[in-house]
C-alpha cells in the first residue's frame, strides 16, 4: 500500500539546514493500522505530510498504491489525495461557515461527483458517524468529539483506501477519544489502511503496529503479537 525507501526531508533557510527525516524506510501493507509515536519535533508530522502527499520528499522513493509519486506534478498529487487518501486532523479543520453537510461534501465536489450521488454519499457518511440528524448545523454548534466525527465522515465520504490521522484525539477528553478510536478501528476492520500519529502511548499500544520516530529516523517498529486462539 505504502512503501517509502530511504526518504529524506531537509528544510533549508539561509543560515540553517534541518533534517526532518533521514534515511526513512517504511512499508505499510493494505489493511494495516499503524500508529506513529515520538517526541515533539521528531519528524512525525513531516512523515505524515509526505505520506499524504502534502509535501514532497527531498530524496528517496515513495510508492503509494504501487505508483511512484515523486514524479507527480501538483495537479496529479491533488487528484491522488482526493481519490486515495482521507485526512483526519488534530483540530478537525472543519470549515466554520459551512454546515455539516457542506463540510463533508467538500472532497466529493473536488472529485466532480454529481449532486444526487453526493447527497447519498454525504448522508451515508454522516449517518455512519451518527450525525445525520444534525447535517444543517454548523461545526460551532457541536462538541469537540462530534466535530471530529464530522471530520471522520469527511475523510471517509470519498471511500479512500488510505486514512491518515494526525493526533485525532489530541483535542478530546478521554471518553470522547475512546469513541473516536473505536470508530477508527471499525473503519480499519472494514479494510481501510490507517496511519495515525499520536502522542498517546496507551492508544498506540492498542494498535497492531507501532512505529517510533526519533530525530527523523525510525528507531522502533513493533508489531503486536497475535492473540492466542
Amino acid at each position: 500500500m505504502l512503501k517509502m525507501t530511504h526518504i529524506s526531508k531537509v528544510f533549508r533557510t539561509d543560515v540553517v539546514e534541518t533534517h526532518a527525516l533521514r534515511d526513512f524506510s517504511l512499508h505499510v501493507a493494505e489493511g494495516e493500522f499503524v500508529t506513529v509515536t515520538g517526541p515533539s519535533g521528531c519528524g512525525k508530522t513531516t512523515f505524515l505530510n509526505i505520506a499524504g502527499l502534502l509535501e514532497t520528499a527531498s530524496g528517496g522513493q515513495y510508492l503509494l498504491d504501487g505508483e511512484d509519486v515523486s514524479s507527480l506534478n501538483d495537479f496529479q498529487r491533488a487528484r491522488m489525495r482526493n481519490q486515495k487518501i482521507g485526512f483526519i486532523f488534530q483540530s478537525f479543520n472543519l470549515m466554520p461557515d459551512l454546515n455539516l453537510f457542506d463540510n463533508v461534501d467538500v472532497p466529493l465536489r473536488y472529485r466532480g461527483v454529481n449532486a444526487a450521488e453526493r447527497k447519498v454519499r454525504v448522508e451515508r457518511a454522516l449517518d455512519a458517524v451518527g450525525l445525520l440528524s444534525r447535517k444543517k448545523h454548523l461545526p460551532a454548534q457541536l462538541s469537540g468529539g462530534q466535530q471530529q466525527r464530522v471530520a471522520i465522515a469527511r475523510a471517509l465520504v470519498g471511500e479512500p483506501r488510505f486514512l491518515l490521522a494526525d493526533e485525532p484525539t489530541g483535542n478530546l477528553d478521554s471518553n470522547t477519544a475512546e469513541g473516536v478510536m473505536e470508530l477508527l478501528h471499525e473503519i480499519n476492520n472494514n479494510g481501510t489502511t490507517i496511519i495515525m500519529v499520536t502522542h498517546d502511548v496507551v492508544l498506540a499500544s492498542r494498535s497492531a503496529r507501532n512505529i517510533q520516530i526519533l530525530d527523523g529516523r525510525i528507531i522502533d517498529d513493533r508489531r503486536a503479537q497475535p492473540k492466542a486462539a
Binding site: 499524504g52 491533488a78 487528484r79 485526512f87 470549515m95 467538500v106 472529485r111
Partner: peptide
C-alpha cells in the same frame, strides 16, 4: 489560510 490548506489536502487543485 488553514482552511485553504485543508481544501488543498482534501483534493482541491490550484485552479480550484
Amino acid at each position: 489560510r488553514k482552511q485553504i490548506g485543508t481544501r488543498r489536502a482534501l483534493g482541491a487543485t490550484r485552479p480550484a
